[in-house]
């Protein structure tokens, strides 16, 4: 399949899953009825249906698409930048920072007092974490060691953020807060409003714009940092765009959805063979694949156990981990 055909097929899949996400839910609306209510609003005659579609399902589907695209795109970008197929969006601390910020608002009760406190604090946490990582990873050198120091700084900051999150959980004021924190951390798109979309989408879009500029530099990095610099790659700028792009998009995504694992790791792996392993061509393909994975998982969550409020992050990990194992298994057979 040519590159365009792959992207077209993926886009069609994402569109279909987006529509499926819009028409899935406990309200008992028919698919046609629901889409009609979405398009016409209260003027269509069914105010309740319009409310469900526009205030509940549309933001949920938009966030599924955007969060998935963020995870796939940033996963592909970081794997390309670090030249390591095990890199994932959480590596540079953005999601751990966002989690800490969000958990603190639940811990302090701020989240209950003011609806947007949680995603705002999540964004703030992501920014603090990434600022710490970039400061730790040190000044810009023309080449050498850049990727490795970033990984080490990311691991250090992520561990610290995770420890502080555990502390908040440990010291939670009452059992309800503890349960709320744990549930939030599992990752979900249930009951997100258009306000969440308005808050997170601009940051995600900014991150996507930064990550989209990386293609050429990531291709060059296939040859290593020294050779990439020698064919005209500005390594310092490449790193800055990779870090800020990931921070903005993943920080915003985690702030509204919680931690959704494995998508950022698996989506690039799935797409790599289809695009000839070229990092620049992997970026859009992994973004679309990530969107499809999260949308599909979010539909599955509602179909499998509508009454139990199954968490999205649990499902992606449940499907993702064995799948990743299978990928590793297959790769091992090919190598030996």
């Amino acid at each position: 399949m040519s590159g365009r055909a792959v992207l077209a097929a993926l886009a069609a899949l994402v569109a279909a899953l987006f529509a499926l996400s819009l028409t899935t839910g406990p309200a008992g609306l028919g698919a046609w009825e629901g889409l009609r209510a979405l398009a016409l609003g209260a003027d269509g005659g069914d105010a309740a249906a319009a409310l469900v579609m526009r205030e509940l399902r549309l933001p949920r589907a938009i966030l599924g698409l955007a969060v998935g695209a963020t995870l796939g795109l940033s996963g592909a970008a970081l794997q390309g930048y670090l030249r390591n197929p095990l890199a994932e969006p959480g590596l540079i601390g953005a999601s751990a920072g966002a989690t800490l910020g969000a958990v603190l608002t639940i811990h302090t009760g701020l989240a209950a007092a003011f609806a947007l406190a949680l995603p705002l604090a999540g964004l703030g946490g992501a920014l603090v974490a990434v600022a710490a990582v970039t400061a730790l990873a040190g000044g810009e050198r023309p080449s050498g060691g850049g990727a490795l120091t970033l990984i080490l700084a990311g691991v250090a900051v992520t561990s610290l953020m995770a420890a502080l999150t555990s502390l908040a959980l440990n010291l939670s004021p009452n059992p309800f807060a503890a349960v709320e924190i744990v549930f939030w951390m599992l990752g979900s798109l249930t009951d997100r409003s258009m306000l969440h979309v308005q808050l997170a989408l601009p940051f995600m879009a900014l991150g996507w714009a930064l990550l989209a500029t990386l293609g050429r530099g990531l291709d060059a990095l296939t040859l290593g940092e020294d050779a990439a610099a020698s064919i005209g790659t500005n390594l310092a700028r490449l790193r800055l765009c990779a870090v800020l792009g990931t921070a903005a998009s993943v920080g915003a995504a985690t702030s509204v959805s919680g931690a959704i694992g494995f998508v950022g790791l698996v989506a690039p792996h799935l797409m790599r063979p289809l695009v000839g392993a070229q990092p620049s061509r992997l970026l859009p393909a992994a973004a679309l694949a990530g969107a499809a994975l999260v949308l599909a998982a979010d539909v599955a969550v509602r179909l499998i156990a509508p009454e139990r409020d199954l968490k999205l992050g649990v499902v992606t990990a449940l499907i993702g981990a064995p799948f990743f194992l299978w990928l590793v298994w297959r790769a091992r057979e090919r190598l030996t």
Binding site: T222, L223, I231, G232
Partner: peptide, 27 residues
């Protein structure tokens, strides 16, 4: 003005030979 062939023969991803050689055209 100058091409550079480092000693480390790094090829991070299984891209085709043609694609890899084409990276030299980047500048």
């Amino acid at each position: 003005r100058a091409a550079w062939l480092p000693q480390e023969r790094e090829i991070a991803w299984p891209v085709s030979v043609q694609t890899l050689v084409g990276l030299g055209r980047a500048p």
